[in-house]
Design a protein around this nucleic acid. Structure first.
Lengths: 169, 169
DNA sequence: ATTTTTAGTCCATTTTATTCCATTATGCTC
DNA sequence: GAGCATAATGGAATAAAATGGACTAAAAAT
């Protein structure tokens, strides 16, 4: 079974918690020592990312000597400020629930009693409100379509080039 | 659990003290021998940095041979003057509170009875007034967003460039 | 149709936040 | 130098909120 694929509607309960589907819950259990350690963070695009802690650490492994670099670099401080401010470390509850902390509700629109969608993204999950998901999905698809058209066009130009080259001979 | 992540609103009491959330308090306890030794200093951007003493020492360690260099360098003397003047060593009280010294209130705007925000920055905390945080966060996020848009545009531009190159042939 | 799984709601317990008060320290005036 | 006044620190208590768990209803699968 491929982990973290598919998407499904979920609702956020009155306490700001979401329940994972059995499928996604077991995907998380396969990481780490099965303790369900996860990391939540707000994506710049407006969704909420939910990754196994192991995956998150892989993503950030590049950063060496953060303290020394922060001392002398504004860029480094701002990077850490953004990722620090928008990230939350947590674990999945015994009942398979995730509590979305307040500060992440603000920026993602994932408030209590909101309908939302849980999307598998191969290395973890993303949670979006129905509206932001529609918008983001549209953008991603448009970009892919545009690039596809460019590829098709490029394929024709290549053939034309060959013909032109032949003409000159 | 990853330390020093997330952010939350805090208020400064009438005596100029802030209370740490249990999460952040325990993050500090994990450093040193659990004595809660911290270092406060004013960031160039206007926030108040709160780091475990250990982390602060790492940051300063980057400066090699300070005595020798101070003897012959005005630049070095001024650097040390700035960081010396803007830094305060303290510890976390039994109730998890930090008193902000007067000279740091001036430069950060963190006066008694002010609403502020406590931000985890991976190696420690930062405290900002709501206004300065909104401004600083905006700058950091705009930079990141702009970079993201450039990446998307660049992805299309590469395809276009190939086509244009073909046209000229 | 029955049984098992899942989602949602509600309640109890624990944790956390805020406010207020008491004690101690510091500084100023007489 | 003594006493008073003001500020600071530490601590406790009360109120609010969040967490975890259980129960019920509904849906799905056998």
């Amino acid at each position: 079974m491929l982990p973290f694929f598919g998407h499904e509607k979920v609702s956020i309960d009155s306490n700001g918690r979401v329940k994972l589907s059995p499928r996604f819950a077991s995907d998380f259990r396969e990481y780490g020592n099965g303790n369900g350690q996860i990391v939540l963070f707000c994506l710049p695009e407006g969704g909420l990312a939910v990754y196994p802690e192991e995956i998150f650490l892989q993503m950030r492994r590049a950063e060496a000597h953060p303290a020394e670099r922060a001392a002398e670099s504004l860029l480094q401080r701002r990077k850490m400020r953004l990722s620090g401010a928008m990230t939350h470390s947590d674990s999945i509850s015994n009942q398979g629930r995730i509590t979305i902390p307040h500060f992440l509700r603000e920026h993602t629109g994932l408030h209590p009693n909101i309908q939302s969608v849980m999307v598998g993204v191969e290395i973890g999950l993303e949670i979006w409100t129905l509206e932001t998901w529609a918008s983001e999905f549209g953008k991603a698809r448009n970009h892919a379509n545009e690039k596809g058209e460019l590829e098709m066009a490029s394929d024709l130009y290549c053939s034309k080039k060959i013909n032109k080259g032949d003409e000159k001979l």
